[in-house]
């Protein structure tokens, strides 16, 4: 199975959790993401025990907040990353990290399938581009996201296809704003 299939399947599993509280789909997401969350948290300086506990906590949050997953604006991996990042700050820094306002739901309950699929594919291409970066650059980006670099040391994510993802999310936001007015 290609990773491309993985992204689309994770998206379908996430929506099954959101809509039907589907425990089988949740178990599949857990099997993929929990061990990767544990790796990410350990790279960020957590002990194995802290990382284990925090990964479970993140996955419990994934369950509780499933209704906030929007496949037009994030892949499952991206959405879970944002939850884990916030928990990591609680765990290791104990600072607050204010979050932007949530955008209200549009009146249309179903995400646009084509737009959601396109974003999942863009995210897929981003992952491939990341894998193809020279090792040194990829390591820097990883340290910026997973380590605790100060913001002046943050590596520029150059060479990654971020423009297409930005444009697509921008369009999704415009569509949402139009529905709301």
């Amino acid at each position: 199975m290609t990773i491309d299939d993985d992204a689309a399947r994770h998206c379908a599993q996430m929506l099954a959790v959101a809509r039907h509280a589907d425990q089988t789909a949740f178990a599949a997401l857990f099997a993929h993401f929990a061990p990767r969350l544990k790796a990410f948290l350990m790279k960020s300086g957590a002990t194995a025990a802290q990382a284990e506990d925090c990964a479970q906590d993140v996955m419990a949050t994934v369950w509780r907040k499933a209704g906030q997953f929007d496949p037009e604006r994030a892949s499952v991996a991206t959405w879970i990353f944002t939850i884990a990042r916030n928990r990591r700050i609680d765990l290791l820094r104990r600072d607050r990290r204010p979050e932007p306002e949530d955008l209200p739901w549009g009146p249309e309950p179903e995400p646009d399938q084509a737009d959601a699929l396109a974003l999942q594919q863009d995210s897929q291409r981003l992952g491939e581009a990341l894998a193809q970066l020279p090792e040194e650059q990829r390591a820097l980006i990883e340290r910026a996201y997973f380590g605790d670099l100060s913001h002046s040391e943050i590596a520029a994510a150059t060479g990654l296809p971020l423009g297409t993802i930005k444009s697509r999310i921008r369009l999704a936001l415009e569509k949402l704003r139009q529905k709301l007015t």
Partner: peptide, 27 residues
């Protein structure tokens, strides 16, 4: 939208981590 694209980098990194096995009974 720019922030969401940068978050996607974090997501891609997470997705490609070498898995560290969870404890027995974690699920």
């Amino acid at each position: 939208a720019r922030l969401a694209a940068l978050d996607a980098v974090g997501g891609a990194l997470l997705d490609r981590q070498e898995a560290v096995p969870m404890a027995e009974g974690a699920l």
